[in-house]
Design a binder for these strands. Structure first.
Lengths: 322, 322
DNA sequence: ATAATAGTGTCTATTAGACACTATGGG
DNA sequence: CCCATAGTGTCTAATAGACACTATTAT
């Protein structure tokens, strides 16, 4: 109704003189998840530059205008900042890394320097894909996700946009969110203690990535992306247990996985050794050709709520965006 | 390994002189879905400017640097371009619109003028929320989704990024994708015939939005966002049938909806009239407080594949990103 | 009156999960 | 030897979906 006169079409911001308008930067950040010693880890780099210097942050960088897609930028940044060269060798575990778009974070003020719009990607990598070799990315390290303070920086990013309730005028309350100063001391990369606070709104991005990962294991075969070419059902179960942080029933899990068409297909061989503390050798499998698990592997119902009498217990966290 | 020397941190692109680097524009586009006469429609605007002039496109526009969040930009563009004023009146159906981030599309070449990164949003609106009033947005119109050519512009956007297979070097094949020229003649906005080709890569964005919408109805209560404050179970069923394009069993659907805790809660009243061609008056319900449907309402299994013998038929399209 | 619809009851095939059991191999 | 583990069999409660039936209302 009484909106100010604006052209119907997208008004073009003087493209030929790009400075006339918006000084907005576009970056790509990547949440790379992997399993080390049965624990879920995320790849972080230590910042050497002023905003949040010394803090740990997600690997990422600026999109090269006109020269690459968003996903290509994600792959490039992973190589540059963490020494992960994804597609280089498809025969190795690294060639099988899964990469998908996670969400875009564009609140003004999420970077003190200027308005930065960050497109976040989520990757699943097999165990320890070269823990950042002698490249210039010496500051990259894997961190246990349970050592991160993921409660920080709420009310930003895609998760905050009017999920449950409907849009009320301005959608997200503008966060007062003074970004955390670099007070956090980096700790032992794999150490279980010492909570780490991430730079910018990266805690929220990691939290969204974890939500997405946990949800995707239910209905996609991507758990295999955390493993090598061949794996056993117990290894696959360990992936689920690490990501979901739940103990699963070995027998039922085994039968369930094999009952989903296209999830895994058996190689003829068996594992070299038996279980960690004994037991028969497990059979080996490869990823099947299914893109979706049907029926899905549902997480055991986390019964936190009192649960209405007579009705089954139910409370499953809402997946980040999907 | 042998990566060129690059600073470990995100190299800062001369922020103080924003022109030194990347002339990248950031826009926000919105896929607004609604139901008109039992059919799923999407809101489109007709372009009046050179690239794809005369073509239909998603409402959207440039993010105002430093002045708004991405979601705020989406709400603003909806008001400016389509006359939809979302949060203005929470008591009306418009106050209940659902808005969520869909994905970000940033291939170079998706806009011939410059590198444009578009953050797409997805909205569910109740039936005919003011079919674009006498604002400047005179070119906005609802179009039946089955009148759009959604097969165009494949291999772009978030869906294309290494979904099934793992990243092979460069992630997405760079699309040759010469954007469709403005050859498409606009047709009757609600007409069932005449396939419409969308501008830029908006066909893919709409297709991704539809995938997301269909998936979300399974495990979220968002179907109610297509309806008014009060609704009946048959009306809710009509939403599912329109979005999924499937006939559902009335009796089983009714019982299933009421069995999911927090999906709907009954008001005391009943509908004014009976069914379209007779029948008793249905009871009225409001949205409940659940954010997730548990257990979910699964789509009937589309058995397109031959289905391995002995195993249950299964092929559910992979949701766009989640 | 006729026909279509809202809502409920009931039956059945399938499934998730608990439990039990055998066989295998590490320490 | 002893014990943890891989893998399978079996039982039970819960569920999805098909079908049937009634009561109510538009035409």
């Amino acid at each position: 109704m009484a909106t100010p006169p604006v052209t119907t079409d997208q008004q073009w911001p003087a493209a030929h003189e790009p400075c006339a308008y918006a000084p907005i930067a576009v970056t790509v950040d990547v949440v790379v998840l992997t399993l080390c010693q049965g624990r879920l880890h995320v790849l972080l780099v230590q910042r050497g530059e002023p905003p949040h210097r010394g803090c740990w942050a997600l690997p990422g960088g600026f999109l090269r205008a006109g020269r690459e897609t968003l996903a290509e930028a994600a792959v490039r940044e992973l190589a540059e900042e963490a020494g992960l060269r994804l597609g280089a060798d498809p025969s190795t575990a690294l060639g099988r890394i899964h990469l998908e778009q996670l969400g875009t974070y564009g609140d003004p003020g999420r970077d003190p320097r200027m308005h930065v719009v960050s497109v976040a990607y989520l990757a699943f990598a097999p165990d320890l894909p070269a823990p950042e070799a002698g490249t210039d990315a010496a500051t990259a390290a894997w961190h246990r996700v349970d050592s991160l303070d993921l409660a920080a920086n709420r009310a930003s990013g895609p998760s905050a946009e009017a999920h449950g309730g409907g849009v009320g005028g301005r959608t997200g309350a503008r966060p007062t969110q003074g970004p955390p100063q670099a007070t956090t001391r980096p700790t032992d990369p794999t150490g279980p203690s010492a909570v780490i606070t991430l730079a910018f709104d990266h805690a929220r991005i990691v939290a969204d990535g974890l939500d997405r990962a946990r949800a995707k294991l239910e209905y996609s075969p991507l758990a295999t992306a955390f493993l090598g070419h061949d794996f056993t059902i117990p290894e696959l179960r360990a992936v689920y247990e690490a990501v979901w942080d739940e103990k699963l029933h070995p027998g039922n899990f085994h039968r369930k996985v094999l009952s989903v068409p296209g999830f895994v297909e058996g190689t003829g061989s068996t594992a070299d050794r038996g279980g960690a503390r004994g037991g028969p050798r497990a059979r080996c499998y490869r990823p099947g050709d299914a893109q979706v698990l049907h029926p899905p592997l549902l997480r055991p119902a986390r019964e936190s709520e009192p649960a209405a009498p007579g009705s089954p217990a139910c409370s499953r966290p809402l997946p980040s965006t999907p």
